[in-house]
């Protein structure tokens, strides 16, 4: 594979070069590892997987779509911002093609489109799993990036995935390298889940579920949202906002009159797993799961859906 070569001691200069081009976002060790804006290359930490994936830049946790005062309504148009996100693992990179399917293919979402157009993704290769929860090897991930960095002895090999990426590494010398693929000890067995729709497993497996939502909030591909109005104390001024929601909450399917279609934890748990592994794949040909393991890693009761699927017989 053709790419570019960067000596390890040149990484600091490279990050500074990126900072001059746009806002630079990278993993930073704070209370935990988080993607955030970098002011100094020393802040960047490339050990481990950030707690929150990069979807927070593509679909903000909460954002205003309309401002209103009385019956006067003003659309809040997206404010484009050039951004480079550095140090993104292959699992998180592969979430973007999933989000594209729903946010770009029909009736494109202008906020998502704006982020897509103005973001450059610089990936960081995992030569081994970050921890025991990773299972990306099973999820048929594709090379999706503008640039992608492999550690090779005392240097970095930078693969180029787009013109936007190529423009950032024009100054670096060319290099050829054949990368190796990651091996994960945790594997997801491929099964037609429709055969197990009525299996008692879903009830058993969701026994410890708290319907609390980190499995969806931390998921790089979970995109369910709600639309709600927030009003000031004057009762007139306010904003219509789009904010993350979770199919694991009981009121997610609640309709007027008080009926919720997915009443039980088992229904909601099964729905999440089927959406990730079956429905989306059937419809779009890719999984709505990239094997990052966050839904297991950050589940307070450590419900492991991979184990659960593997046990289905």
């Amino acid at each position: 594979m053709q790419g570019k070569l960067l000596k390890k001691e040149g990484l600091r200069d490279f990050l500074q070069h990126l900072m001059k081009k746009a806002e630079l976002v990278a993993p930073v060790k704070t209370d935990t590892l988080r993607f955030q804006t970098i002011n100094n290359p020393e802040e960047v930490c490339l050990e481990g997987l950030p707690i929150m994936p990069i979807k927070k830049y593509y679909l903000e946790h909460k954002h205003t779509i309309l401002n209103f005062k009385g019956t006067q309504i003003r659309v809040n148009n997206p404010a484009p911002k050039k951004r480079i996100i550095f140090g993104v693992r292959l699992c998180d990179l592969n979430a973007i093609p999933v989000l594209d399917k729903l946010f770009l293919e029909e009736n494109p979402d202008p906020y998502y489109q704006s982020t897509r157009d103005n973001t450059v993704l610089v990936g960081w290769h995992c030569d081994k799993p970050v921890d025991e929860y990773c299972f990306c090897e099973s999820m048929e991930l594709k090379p999706f990036y503008d640039l992608y960095i492999y550690e090779v002895a005392d240097s970095y090999f930078i693969a180029i995935g787009s013109k936007k990426g190529a423009d950032l590494v024009k100054h670096l010398p060319s290099f050829e390298y054949e990368p190796t693929r990651i091996k994960c000890s945790k594997k997801l067995e491929k099964k037609d889940l429709n055969r197990f729709l009525e299996n008692p497993t879903w009830k058993e497996a969701s026994k410890d579920c708290l319907s609390c939502g980190p499995c969806t909030n931390y998921c790089p591909t979970c995109l369910c949202f709600d639309i709600e109005d927030e009003v000031e104390l004057d009762g007139k001024t306010g904003e219509r906002k789009l904010h993350w929601d979770s199919c694991q909450y009981k009121d997610f399917t609640l309709v007027a009159g008080g009926f919720a279609f997915r009443q039980t934890k088992a229904d909601r748990f099964r729905h999440r797993i089927f959406h990730k592994i079956q429905y989306f794949k059937d419809k779009f040909g890719i999984y709505m799961c990239t094997g990052c393991g966050r839904c297991i890693r950050w589940c307070p009761t450590r419900i492991d859906f991979v184990e659960i699927i593997n046990r289905l017989r």
Partner: peptide
């Protein structure tokens, strides 16, 4: 069918039933 339909665009997830 009646479901909780929020975005109307086949996106927000509330109304989804079996895919």
């Amino acid at each position: 069918l009646e479901r909780h339909m929020k975005c109307g665009l086949g996106r927000c997830g509330h109304c989804m039933v079996h895919g």
